[in-house]
Design a protein around this nucleic acid. Sequence first.
DNA 1: CACGTGGA
DNA 2: TCCACGTGG
Length: 326
Amino acid sequence: MGNADLRDLAAIEDVSFEDLAGSVVAVDAHNWLYRYLTTTVRWTNDDIYTTADGDEVANLVGVVQGLPKFFEHDVTPVFVFDGSVVDLKDDEVEQRREEREKREEQLEQAREEGDSIAVARLESQTQRLTDTILTTTREVLELFDVPVIEAPAEGEAQAAHMAREGAVDYVGTEDYDALLLGTPLTLRQLTSKGDPELMDFEATLETHDLTWEQLVDAAILMGTDFNEGVSGIGPKTAVKAVREHGDIWGVFEARDVYVDNADRIRDLFLHPAVTDDYDFDREIEPDMEAARAYVCEEWEVDPEEVERGFERIEQSVVQTGLDRWT
DNA sequence: CACGTGGA
DNA sequence: TCCACGTGG
């Protein structure tokens, strides 16, 4: 049900962090958090990220360890948070709920059997973005003076909008949906070891000789977060069919296939709910003392877990601060 | 989501 | 060559 098929169509090139110096990146906060919480924290001891009250705050460790990468390369991150979930996604929400419940049953059984490996694996899969995680992430970002934007609906759509308006230079996300939302330049693998990847919207359209609408139509045929896609249609066939028949309706007619709500799905990508009510300052002046107190005292994170991150933030902010005077 | 496999 | 599907992260 993913849209990884889109990768085959996307115009992607490697860039280096040096190329990004001085730029502003709108980060899809949910994507960033989810990725962090399901990878980095995965095989370590969960207890060190849990407060006495039982709140999981691994996200705070993630923020403190993740921000230096931006600052050290003189990149200003702007975190965009999701608003309400779109109606059409109810199907997917429901399906995820069922999957989660199934995993929770398996987890309970694994605990009873003392299978620690299975427990660790299942815990990673059941982990989700709790209200505490979302709230504390916003709060700690504000202490670091990192801009936080609230999207009316999907953060990715809002980020794409801001990039299209020129308010930010890039959108940072792993999600190929960014392409369907018309994000001009998308950065992937910002948190990975190697070089980031740059996904170019206009170049993608040109490569396949498609319009934006046609790219979305092809994606709907392949399957998106909002629909299953037509069996037997992958990237190659989808693009060929859309070019040949003009749009998704032409393909439906020619191949005698159908996707429910195709017009609405199209709209979610072409005309998503976004706002122009955002404003942020690209100069960042973190309140390190307050941030430390928030993370280590208020939320009881072991200082050792975040010390290196705090140091790097201090260093890099001083560094760029000096740069501004030269 | 990446990657590998296997069938058409 | 293209696509579906399972697995691990």
